[in-house]
């Protein structure tokens, strides 16, 4: 199922991508490491709204961006469920 975000979705996607401060090379390598199957040129075309992608490929790209954002994010407070159980 080909997928090409437009309007607000595309803007949100691009805002997230900018926040990663990754260049195309680094983004593609991260996407590739996750198992992405599409080449760098196609990814660039997709980001420019020129070429649709299967939705799983979109999600892998989104995930590569989000993992990077988690790396950059400040530390988070753990929930009780994440703490070791009390004796």
């Amino acid at each position: 199922m080909p997928y090409l975000p437009d309007g607000e979705y595309r803007q949100r996607f691009h805002a997230a991508l900018r926040a990663t401060r990754l260049d195309m090379e680094e983004l593609w390598l991260r996407y590739f490491a996750l198992g992405g199957e599409v080449g760098r040129v196609e990814i660039e075309a997709y980001l420019n709204g020129l070429l649709p992608l299967p939705s799983l490929q979109h999600d892998l790209l989104a995930h590569a961006i989000n993992e990077r954002l988690d790396e950059l994010a400040p530390p988070r407070a753990p929930y009780a469920s994440e703490l070791p159980p009390l004796e």
């Binding site: 490491a33 996750l34 198992g35 799983l56 999600d59 995930h63 989000n66 993992e67 988690d70 988070r76």
Partner: peptide, 20 residues
């Protein structure tokens, strides 16, 4: 294969750990 990959992405997003 695609559904299994989506499972991994879900688990990663829920637990906020990397897919790796």
């Amino acid at each position: 294969a695609d559904a299994a990959m989506r499972r991994l992405l879900e688990m990663s997003a829920q637990r906020r750990i990397t897919v790796r």
